[in-house]
Design a protein around this nucleic acid. Structure first.
Length: 333
DNA sequence: TATACGTGGTC
DNA sequence: TGACCAAGTAT
């Protein structure tokens, strides 16, 4: 992909400065099933055009967006980006694709090598699932990442979002790609609230489908563009409305940006949890070239009951392989 | 539907 | 400084 070169023509003025008429009275579209409705403005005036134009000018030049990345590159990036910031993914992604340029290359490796190469990206089960997905692709799909949504969804580690993302980004298909960025953009621009619900709702899926451009190519670009808008401009905190191409039509902004009211968005501590212990145990195993004695693992956590529970969990998840004589290693199979 | 699952950066 | 946040999935 070439770097964006088109100079900005937006000028110094805030595009949000002149709110456009948002809705045509009396034309809201009732949604049959859930009792929700799609605001008229969303369906009457295409939202995607200004966002796609903005994307053409401001999109980041990320390696998995280049044509040479291919479907496998897109798929690897989607696994790595699940709950993980772009900046941390970048170096691991490059190393991964250089080492395993095709699904069959990864499938031929021990799963433990995938876990090791995963490094400190977090959620190492993703590495195992990516390895499993590569194996399934090698076996069932002739070594090529499937383009069919249902076949993608059947692969380990691929859920609703990732299946749509791969089908859309890698194959240009028309799917509602509903990630946390898009959900936030729609929550604000259309629904008029600061944050989407904690879990994706039927109403959100319905809205996303309603906003999807008819044309397949436009739909794929809208998916990438709306996601990028959420990542760069319509961020969770400190949003930059002055840089937003649809600020003038944003329901949340037009309403005075009311604060989120519902229940707390999240709240999970990490220190002292099994997750932290698992992380420490796996770090030792990742950094060791071969099997590690129990005694070495015992040093990562003082409390023996929790330590044993965490290790058992890793074994149960297939992230660690117990050997005889109290040795442990990353899985060979 | 709620919870488990890593890690590190930000304000 | 602690809470929140980052392209979710599986159960």
């Amino acid at each position: 992909m070439t770097a964006p070169t088109k100079p900005s023509h937006n000028g110094p003025s805030d595009p949000a400065g002149t709110p456009a008429p948002a809705a045509v009275p009396g034309t809201s579209v009732p949604a049959a099933a859930s009792g929700t409705s799609v605001p008229a403005a969303a369906s009457a005036v295409p939202l995607h055009a200004p966002v796609v134009d903005w994307f053409d000018e401001h999109a980041r030049d990320l390696p998995w967006r280049r044509p040479e990345a291919g479907a496998w590159g897109v798929m690897v990036s989607e696994f790595m980006l699940q709950q993980t910031p772009v900046n941390r993914v970048l170096p691991v992604y490059e190393h991964w694709l250089a080492r395993w340029p095709r699904p069959a290359d990864l499938a031929a490796e021990a799963p433990g090598e995938a876990v090791r190469a995963w490094g400190r990206l977090g959620y190492p089960r993703r590495a195992l699932r990516l390895h499993g997905a590569a194996a399934a692709i090698a076996e069932r799909h002739g070594g090529d990442v499937p383009s069919d949504h249902a076949q993608l969804l059947a692969l380990p580690g691929i859920g609703e979002y990732t299946a749509a993302a791969v089908a859309s980004f890698a194959y240009g298909q028309r799917h509602a790609v509903l990630d946390t960025n898009v959900r936030r953009v729609l929550a604000r621009a259309v629904t008029g609230v600061q944050y989407p619900p904690n879990a994706t709702t039927a109403a959100e899926r319905k809205l996303a489908r309603a906003l999807l451009p008819d044309d397949e190519r436009d739909a794929a670009r809208w998916a990438a563009a709306s996601m990028e808008l959420g990542a760069l401009v319509c961020t969770a905190k400190n949003e930059s409305c002055h840089r937003c191409p649809i600020a003038g039509r944003c329901a949340w902004r037009l309403a005075g940006k009311p604060a989120h009211d519902g229940p707390p968005r999240r709240g999970q501590t990490y220190a002292g949890t099994d997750r932290q212990v698992r992380g420490r145990l796996l770090a030792v195993l990742r950094e060791a070239p071969g099997p590690v004695p129990q005694a070495a693992l015992d040093q990562v956590w003082h409390e023996p009951v929790q330590r044993a529970r965490a290790l058992d969990g890793l074994v149960a998840d297939g992230l660690v392989e117990p050997l005889a004589d109290g040795l442990y290693r990353l899985p060979l199979s």
